[in-house]
């Protein structure tokens, strides 16, 4: 076995895993926050995520055709794209809740779930329709910004592109802001109160519907940010690109303990790292018997094991109080 190679790629794989993990963590927050307040899995969240990526690519493509993409300062461009993706994904999530979930709030639990799956398909095909009319394209490529693609060569086998550092920094900043909002502000305390007991929260003067909308807004905005970062990092998107990362982020949320915000962050990181290591090491360690294409089987097997032995996830499911 080629130990120097195994060791040599380790930092690179670690970095890939961390990036992937933050991506999953950001998406997972949308699932887990909504679950926390409604005990409902928003299956359309994967599309809310990918809409963020489309907002990003549309803005970047417009800037490029206007010929200003490489003359504007890139941090400004990136910040603008992030905020726009967050705003539109957040607004979309709020709208979806109003139209497709709120009228079904008192219906049996399976009904809003089916509605969410319907919204998911609807959004996928809506994006496809819009992009095929607008650009006559299915796959879209994120325009590259030269400065973002600059790579720091650390060693022969390891180099770190600027964009990866930016993705990590942006994800960290967002997770920190979310943490502060949820744990240190009155509105965040109200979100936690509604998650625990809606009727009691309404007796405090909290408008429960507004807090639910706010939860969708925050979760959607995090998803939109993840979408933009996903596009910047991986480059290629299509209307169905949200599905698999969404499913994995949902898994990450379950892994960390669904409804549990720090759990979603941890679950995302664990899953991202598992996947990156499986992708790079499986074939090396098994002498080619299992290739990188088995990474998901490997990651999900470990997930199943964790769920068998820790069914409430790593940090514990947040069990809601009396409804």
């Amino acid at each position: 076995m080629d130990y120097p190679l195994l060791l040599g790629i380790f930092p690179q794989v670690l970095l890939d895993g961390i990036i992937l993990g933050f991506m999953y963590a950001l998406i997972a927050l949308g699932y887990t926050m909504v679950y926390g307040v409604l005990e409902f899995i928003n299956f359309a969240h994967s599309e809310i995520f990918i809409v963020g990526a489309f907002v990003g690519v549309e803005i970047l493509l417009s800037l490029r055709s206007a010929g200003v993409l490489d003359t504007l300062p890139w941090p400004l461009v990136l910040l603008f794209v992030l905020v726009a993706g967050m705003a539109i994904s957040g607004a979309l999530a709020v709208t979806v809740e109003r139209i497709a979930y709120r009228p079904l709030r008192t219906a049996p639990r399976l009904i809003p779930l089916i509605s969410a799956i319907g919204v998911s398909f609807f959004l996928q095909d809506l994006i496809r329709l819009v992009e095929s009319i607008w650009r006559n394209a299915f796959n879209l490529v994120y325009p590259t910004m030269d400065q973002l693609n600059y790579r720091f060569e650390l060693t022969e086998t390891i180099d770190v592109p600027v964009k990866s550092l930016v993705v990590i920094a942006a994800a960290l900043a967002m997770l920190w802001v979310l943490h502060v909002i949820v744990n240190r502000t009155t509105i965040g305390t109200a979100i936690r109160a509604v998650a625990e007991d809606q009727a009691a929260a309404s007796l405090m003067g909290i408008d429960v519907n507004r807090i639910i909308s706010l939860t969708f807004l925050i979760g959607g905005a995090m998803g939109g940010a993840a979408g933009v970062l996903f596009g910047v990092q991986y480059g290629l998107i299509n209307p169905y690109s949200g599905f698999i990362p969404g499913l994995k982020a949902f898994t990450a949320a379950v892994l960390g303990g669904i409804g549990n915000i720090p759990g979603a962050m941890l679950g995302g990181l664990v899953l991202g790292l598992l996947e990156a290591f499986a992708a790079s090491y499986l074939s090396l360690l098994t002498a080619g018997a299992f290739g990188a294409e088995y990474k998901d089987i490997f990651a999900f097997s470990i997930l199943i094991l964790i769920l068998i032995f820790r069914p409430k996830g790593l940090l514990g499911e947040v069990v809601r109080g009396r409804a």
Partner: peptide, 21 residues
């Protein structure tokens, strides 16, 4: 309310602040 319905996962102070929401 009957059965108190305090927010178990919030601190005492946070519960009180919710009262003043």
């Amino acid at each position: 309310p009957e059965g108190r319905r305090i927010f178990n996962r919030l601190t005492v102070r946070e519960n009180l602040m919710m009262g003043a929401y």
